[in-house]
Amino acid sequence: MFEAVGLMVFYENMLALNNVSLVCGQNQIIGVFGANSAGKSTLMYTLSGIMDDIAKKERMAGGERITIRGELAYLGRNIMGDKPSVRAKAGIILCPERRRIFPESTVLENLRIASYLANKKQAEETLDYVFELFPPLTKITGRLGGFLSGGEQQMLAIGRALMAQPKLLLLDEPLLGLSPAIQYWLAKAIKEIAEQRGASIIVAEQYARPIMPIIDYGYILENGSAVIEGGRQELMDNPDVKSAYFGA
């Protein structure tokens, strides 16, 4: 369904992504694991097209020179160079790092803004689904986005991404700053989304422990390169992965 081949991203001469290739099949959950600055967010931004926008803005402002190379095939079409809004319309929705909730809008309004790409029926149906998936949100529909706790923000961020009718959902560090209990609960919710919405999901995360059990295939990023890849069991059995992510 989605395939990235030989992605390279340079910030000036610094290599942020080095020849990363990644495949995501229909209805699969793909994990991308790595420490801070391994290139996870750069990868997610590159897949969703935000990187192109950042590069454009830097170029206009005479800032850093950002170069993006490689191929992105989505549903049999090359989407490299497409604007983020075009990719979003095609179904690639990014749930960005640090959530980026609209702080001055209420929870409900955040979701309504996000239904920009949905028609009326889809918007209503998805709204019901989001509240069903994340019951805590139903109690705080009137609260401003800026006053939510980390867990509430993350639920809202994922709910918001769902409102945009994703076929390929990109989750960038969804577990960041959450307690272990909520991390596991959220990982379960992510699996449910893949099953119930028929969406393919790529999760970038540094906390591998809660995410590893729900993925079909995974990649380990290190300094911008995909150093290890494999199926769920394969990764969990890999001694390097074990020592780095499971502390065993």
């Binding site: 969703s48 097209g49 935000i50 926008d53 983020p84 809004s85 979003a88 319309k89 929705i93 990014l94 749930c95 960005p96 980026r100 909730i101 609209f102 702080p103 001055e104 809008s105 309004e109 309504r112 803004i113 996000a114 920009y116 790409l117 918001r160 991404a161 409102m163 945009a164």
Partner: peptide
Amino acid sequence: LALKGMAQDERAAMTLGI
């Protein structure tokens, strides 16, 4: 609503297809 989203966080709005 899209304008309102844009006003608050342009990048987040872009990820939603705006």
